[in-house]
Nucleic acid binder design. Structure first.
Lengths: 357, 357
DNA sequence: CTGAAAGCGCTAACAG
DNA sequence: CTGTTAGCGCTTTCAG
């Protein structure tokens, strides 16, 4: 009668608690020992399986509560096919991905699913293909399905439930949620055209990304629809980044016959344009109108506040998770490549073209 | 000679790949079979253990690359004490926690650690104590240490490395990173006092949270330092939320002798104050100055843009993770309860008090 | 140098 | 109704 196994003891603080070797985790072993039953019985009680006497069940429950036991996500995942955990895989936690995360959280609320966001913290050395690595590490074990945020490659060979958000390279075999970049480009340029602008410059995005190409296409389509010819001399590479955007903007604005408006493929280069204009003493929106794309927080704080095209990022996260849940449940989503509308956010960087002096 | 185990075969696409039963995961078993060696040998090669012939090593490496094998995070975690993964545990993914996440990502970049953010999606039913549940589920198995974001309770009994960010209830036994709420409150009220205001109302926060009490204390200290008496009739409960904030603001502004300025304990109630003022036809900042706390994105877009106290949320995430890494490495952090400075962001909701008409 | 075997914490047959 | 046993994918002794 000397083992700690003599169960139902009424002692308030028993030995099982001091097992601090696992970083303080209480294991099922300890619960079993404390309750004087076997591990499998504890498992049954915890999972509500039938075939346990109500007395045993109560005892176990009491011990579980007293010890504050919680099943290890890991061990459970390893054993079960199903985990009720959804993964959001991101290259890094930056404004776009965290916004997606908020939308994802909105979508799982009240569904019983849990959310795990995973990132190796933007390891530059192995940029391309990070999604494959991550997928291998968590799919089929930790999570039931995954959302890939802006993956660089989409020819993934997993047959598990996966949804990609805004993939870098075109349409892919896997379900995808994207913003309507084409429509966004049109929106921006239509706005400028409506304001009377006819010489509209564009700072294009990274040519290897579909999103960038679609925005440019929107620019061209808007011109065509309005019967305004595109002056190819007014297109410059902005590459989605401030430095290159600044260079392109400067070239455009120092032209003999500069554009009266500039559509930048993203806010970062639009903001750079604003800076260049200020340096050149060009009044915005007095002598130059600027439209961006993305609606990042900074754009509202710019001087003047930037008119820009907003992507419904949060909504994209929400829809991707909803689609993923359907996939996990074995359903076939109605639309596997939904495209979400973009909207124009009018602020003060655009104005009607003044009559030529 | 019929088994698939006959190893070194030169066939391009062998059978091992078709094992689609694990959601497409390639397991070490499959790699071993394909390479014609045992599982343990594969493990050794992957972990760079000594005692493997260079020939075997090459064969295995080749197969690993060809099959795109990646170790399962789960299985590895279960076996090893150390995982090189850090956890950020949040009740929900909302603006505050996602901002923390960005800071955390900044901190792990280049350290070799990976980051997992975990959330059960704000299950309302068991609000208090979610941190205990989460901790049990991931500590000691999935992650080496964890950052708790705004936990409701901090008397956690784990001895593993844990750092809390902005805990709801006072100082705790565990290491903590917080914003200087007291200083923030002083900053706000000093600003108002400096503008000439003498009748300054306050919309207080939730009385059960230390942060709220400290902000109020700052309000009082600023008054004391300036030798201005506090008029208790000018304090109203804002409770950190719009509805209650609106009620408090209305009471304050309809007083016979209303305050000329209001310090709201958070932006949400400050924004509510702005709305009430507009409804009442009170010009801000002409007849009323308003200062908030938090600097949420909406505050910059308000009309007028809100002057507010900014918390360095991102920095808090960064510092918490740095502290966590030190803890995991077995080091003793210099300061286990660092407090980060808050700053005043002056926008257009505050102005100098006009001479009384 | 290589493989067989044990075991991390848990669940699911299957016996007792 | 309960306990024993096997095994999820991996690492690590320990024999061969």
């Amino acid at each position: 009668m000397s083992g700690p196994t003599n169960g139902t003891g009424a002692s308030e603080r028993t030995a099982a608690v001091d097992a601090t070797q696992n970083g303080g985790r209480v294991t099922m072993q300890q619960v079993a020992a404390e309750a004087g039953v076997s591990v499998s019985t504890v498992s049954k009680v915890l999972n509500g399986r039938y075939g346990v006497s109500s007395h045993t069940s109560e005892t176990v429950t009491e011990v579980v509560n007293r010890l504050g036991y919680e099943a290890s996500l890991i061990a459970r995942s390893l054993r079960n096919r199903r985990t009720n955990v959804l993964g959001v895989l991101v290259a890094d936690f930056e404004p776009f991905s965290t916004e997606v995360l908020k939308g994802a959280a909105d979508a799982i609320r009240g569904t019983g699913y849990e959310l795990v966001a995973y990132s190796a913290g933007g390891r530059v050395d192995e940029q391309v293909g990070w999604e494959r690595r991550y997928l291998s590490r968590v799919m089929g074990t930790l999570v039931d399905g995954a959302v890939l945020v802006t993956p660089t490659v989409t020819d993934v060979k997993y047959d598990g439930p996966i949804v990609a958000i805004d993939p870098h390279t075109g349409r892919s075999p896997l379900p995808t949620v994207t913003a309507d970049n084409l429509q966004g480009g049109r929106l921006a340029v239509d706005h400028l055209l409506g304001l009377g602008h006819r010489r509209i410059g564009m700072l294009t995005g990274r040519s290897d990304l579909v999103s960038a190409r679609l925005r440019e296409k929107g620019y061209r389509e808007a011109h065509a629809a309005a019967g305004v010819p595109v002056d190819e001399a007014l297109l410059r590479l902005g590459a989605f980044e401030p430095e290159q955007g600044r260079i392109g903007a400067r070239e455009l604005l120092t032209l003999p016959d500069p554009p009266t408006a500039i559509f930048a493929a993203n806010d970062l280069s639009a903001l750079a344009t604003l800076e260049v204009a200020a340096e050149l003493g060009i009044d915005v929106p007095g002598r130059l109108s600027v439209v961006g794309f993305d609606n990042i927080p900074d754009s509202a704080l710019a001087d003047p506040p930037l008119t820009t095209v907003q992507q419904p990022i949060r909504q994209m996260g929400h829809d991707a998770v909803e689609m993923l849940m359907a996939l996990v449940a074995g359903e076939e989503p109605a639309d596997t490549h939904p495209t979400l509308s973009t909207t124009l956010v009018e602020r003060r960087s655009t104005a009607a073209l003044k009559a030529t002096s």
